[in-house]
Amino acid sequence: MTSLGVVFRPQVPPEQLRAVARAADEAGLEELWLWEDCFWQSGIAAAAAALAVTERLRVGIGLLPVPFRNVALASMEIATLERMFPGRFLPGVGHGVQEWMGQVGARESSPMTLLREHVDAMRTLLRGEEVSTSGRYVTLDKVKLDWPPAQPPQILVGAVGPKTLRLAGEAADGTILDGQNSPERVRWAVGEIEAGRAAAGRTDPHRVVVFTSATTGPDAAERLRREHQAWGHDVTSDLGVAGDAEAFAKGTARYVDAGADALVFTPTADEADLEGYVRFVAQEVKPLVG
């Protein structure tokens, strides 16, 4: 069954998050996703707040930039949230935007090596195991979480290029694809992920989460076009969704057919009613998707 979600964009003031999360939870939305974009909002703090005011809603972070975070601390934060809100936290990690990483003195010469070392150590720590390693970037000496989760959450990796997509398939439990992916490109990305999984001998489930810009209401197509222009996307490509609930459902079907397990709608920057938007996705779109 396809999961549907909505992004709470970090450019929205953080004090609005709790009301949007409550509206999403009450409406029956499955997932609310956050971005830890520099220098807007903390992903962990925002996720904790959203989880604390909801009962059923799953809350994801897509993604935590690994150059920003010591792996032991990040694992402690994830374990804490998973213990307090079992099965409702969806943590994603990734390279981060390299320009931003440079701004804070965290840019590394080999982002791929850093991401692999980080994901490997994090997944082991979250299983409650002791880790000692001396890698190029990750160094741990007999580190073990005192409060590991009863069931470790899936760790997802945000990926764009083929090397990171294959790494996600090899090392992670799922992959996050951002809004620059058309259904055709999602299909290609899934092929790269599967190649990584095959190389690692992975046969366990691997969740593919796809973000896509989506808007409804008056002038939806024009608003979507302006959104793509703002992101620097090709406005002639088959990106995003615009229109009524039926249009959202048809758009979802195209992404699911390409290999998406979850589709997360990103409202446009000019969306004035986020609470109404999450209700629309949960109550009008989801029944058409199944």
Rank of each mutant, 00 (worst) to 15 (best):
T54G: 11
S213V: 07
F248K: 02
A159Y: 03
A230T: 06
E170R: 14
V157P: 00
K250E: 15
L17F: 05
L63Y: 05
K144S: 13
V53M: 09
V131I: 05
V264A: 05
D173S: 05
I193E: 02
R88W: 06
L156C: 00
P67H: 06
T113E: 01
R69A: 01
L145D: 00
P91R: 00
V59E: 08
A198W: 08
I44F: 14
P111R: 01
V278A: 03
E129W: 06
A27I: 09
G161T: 02
F85C: 09
P14T: 12
Q16C: 10
D173W: 03
A262I: 03
P162H: 10
D234T: 01
R279Y: 10
V241M: 05
L4E: 00
L126E: 01
G179F: 05
A230Y: 12
L263M: 08
A195V: 04
G96V: 03
E284W: 13
G191W: 07
D257I: 12
P149R: 08
E26Y: 10
I176G: 02
L73F: 10
G5V: 09
E55Q: 15
G290Y: 09
E129I: 04
I155Y: 04
R107C: 04
E284R: 15
E275T: 12
I78L: 01
P10S: 11
A269H: 14
F85I: 14
V160W: 04
E82S: 15
A282P: 06
P91E: 02
Q103P: 00
F39E: 00
A74K: 02
P86Y: 13
R136Y: 03
G102C: 06
L4M: 11
G259N: 04
E194N: 13
E227P: 00
E30S: 14
L114R: 08
V160T: 10
Y277H: 06
R123C: 01
S42V: 10
R56E: 13
T54C: 11
D261Q: 08
T54K: 11
A172S: 04
G169H: 03
A50H: 07
S3P: 00
T252F: 11
S134A: 13
S237F: 07
G240F: 04
W100S: 08
L263E: 01
R187G: 03
A106L: 15
A195S: 11
H118N: 05
R187T: 07
G179T: 06
G102R: 14
G179I: 05
A79F: 04
T175L: 04
D234P: 06
W231V: 05
S182C: 07
P205H: 12
A48Q: 14
G251Y: 12
H233C: 10
L239M: 09
R136V: 09
Q180F: 03
D141N: 14
L4D: 03
A168L: 02
E15F: 10
T139N: 11
L165S: 02
G105P: 06
L90M: 15
L34A: 07
A27P: 04
A242F: 05
T139I: 11
F211I: 01
M101H: 07
S110D: 15
A49H: 05
K144C: 13
E170A: 14
T133H: 03
G158H: 02
T80D: 12
A79R: 13
Q41L: 09
R9P: 06
C38N: 10
L29S: 08
E77T: 12
F211A: 00
T216N: 08
V138C: 00
P205M: 11
F265Y: 15
G240Y: 01
V143R: 08
S42M: 07
E184G: 14
